[in-house]
Simulated assay, not measured.
Amino acid sequence: MPKKKCGLGFDCASMMQCPGIDPGNCLNYKTCGSAVQLNPEEELELIRIQEEREREYTEQLRRTQERIRLTRHSAAILMLMRRGCPQSLESLGVTPSIETIATQLDTIRTLTTNFDGQYIAPPGCELHVYNVKRPSGTYSYYKLTAERAVFAPSEREQQVRVIHVSHEDDARCIEAQLGIERRNNLTQVRTLLNNATALLEEVTRILELTATINSPTATLEVIDTEEILPID
Rank of each mutant, 00 (worst) to 15 (best):
Y142G: 11
A218P: 03
E54S: 04
G7I: 10
I68W: 01
S136G: 15
I98M: 04
R72N: 03
E99Y: 04
Y119C: 07
V203G: 09
H167S: 12
P2D: 08
T145Y: 00
R134L: 06
Y29K: 07
D169G: 13
S91N: 01
L80F: 05
Y139P: 03
R205Y: 09
L186E: 03
L92S: 01
Q188I: 07
L199S: 15
A149K: 02
N195I: 15
D170C: 15
S97T: 11
C6R: 02
P19K: 05
G179T: 03
N114K: 12
E59Q: 13
G20M: 09
L186A: 07
I49K: 00
P123Y: 02
D22C: 07
N114I: 14
N25A: 11
T219P: 01
R109D: 15
N28Y: 00
S88E: 05
R63S: 11
K133H: 13
S14A: 13
K133D: 15
S14C: 14
Y141I: 15
H167N: 06
M15H: 02
E227S: 04
I49H: 10
P153K: 08
I206G: 10
L207H: 05
N185F: 08
L207S: 11
I120A: 08
T145N: 08
D170Q: 12
I228S: 05
A75P: 02
V189F: 01
E147W: 10
L207A: 15
A75E: 02
G9K: 08
I174F: 03
E59A: 04
I49Y: 02
M1Y: 06
R63L: 13
S14P: 12
Q104K: 02
T204M: 13
G117Q: 00
E56W: 04
P40Y: 01
T204C: 05
E202C: 00
R183F: 12
E175M: 10
R67N: 07
I101M: 06
R190G: 08
N214E: 11
E168R: 13
I77H: 05
E66L: 11
I223D: 02
I47W: 14
K133I: 12
T112K: 08
L61F: 09
T95V: 05
K5M: 06
F10T: 04
T219Y: 05
C125N: 01
R55A: 03
V36W: 11
S97P: 07
R82V: 05
C85W: 00
V36K: 13
A121P: 01
P153S: 07
E126L: 10
T212S: 15
Y141M: 08
P40I: 06
L178Y: 04
V160C: 09
Q177T: 13
P19M: 06
L78S: 01
E54G: 14
S136Y: 03
T197A: 09
G20Y: 00
E227Q: 06
E181N: 12
T113F: 11
L207E: 15
R172K: 08
E155A: 13
E147N: 12
L209R: 13
T212E: 15
Y141R: 08
C85K: 12
K133W: 11
R161S: 04
V203H: 08
L70K: 14
E41H: 10
N194F: 03
N214G: 09
P123C: 03
T138V: 00
Y142R: 07
T58V: 14
L220K: 08
R69Y: 01
Q104T: 14
I98S: 00
L27E: 07
C26P: 08
T113C: 14
C85R: 06
N25I: 07
